[in-house]
Amino acid sequence: MNKPQCSIVQLSRIGLVSALILLLAPLEVFAHGIDISAMPVNAIEITALYDSGQPMAGGQVAIYAPDEPLEPWLTGTCDEEGRFIFAPDYSRPGLWEIQVRLAGHGDLIRFEVTEAGSISAGEPAGLSLLQKIVMALVVGWGAVGTALFFSRRNS
């Protein structure tokens, strides 16, 4: 009779070998393994407040990338202090928009990701063209005055 037989001893030997293989194998073979890594990034923290200073706790945040103005790139919710932190995609330069809304009230702010991959604030609010021209003239006069001062001292 050449009928294959499988005894308890054989099964035990097979089990022992299998157990040794499993113990020696790297941990990655387990299904549902989780690999968490962390690295520092340049993030943006926003704080949304009502005019009274009351935080927009639970405010709905929608962030729009410059090349896709109609669909949010990221959505989220402000914490109890009205804060929300995120890191934009630095490979998408241009003007990004952050919209925060809550119960029918909202606002929108912008920031720029430069070609070099850094963040710069948008155009300073409240400065008109005339103000900028006058500001440039003031700086110019300051430079002229400084030059005259030193030229007089040297002479």
């Binding site: 409240g126 008109s128 005339l130 103000q131 003031v138 006069w141 005055g145």
Partner: peptide
């Protein structure tokens, strides 16, 4: 003279701001 012009320009700056 320089200080005078400087003050005049600063005044212009603030007037421009108020007119906004």
């Amino acid at each position: 003279l320089l200080s005078f012009f400087f003050i005049v320009l600063l005044a212009l700056f603030f007037v421009a701001g108020c007119s906004a």
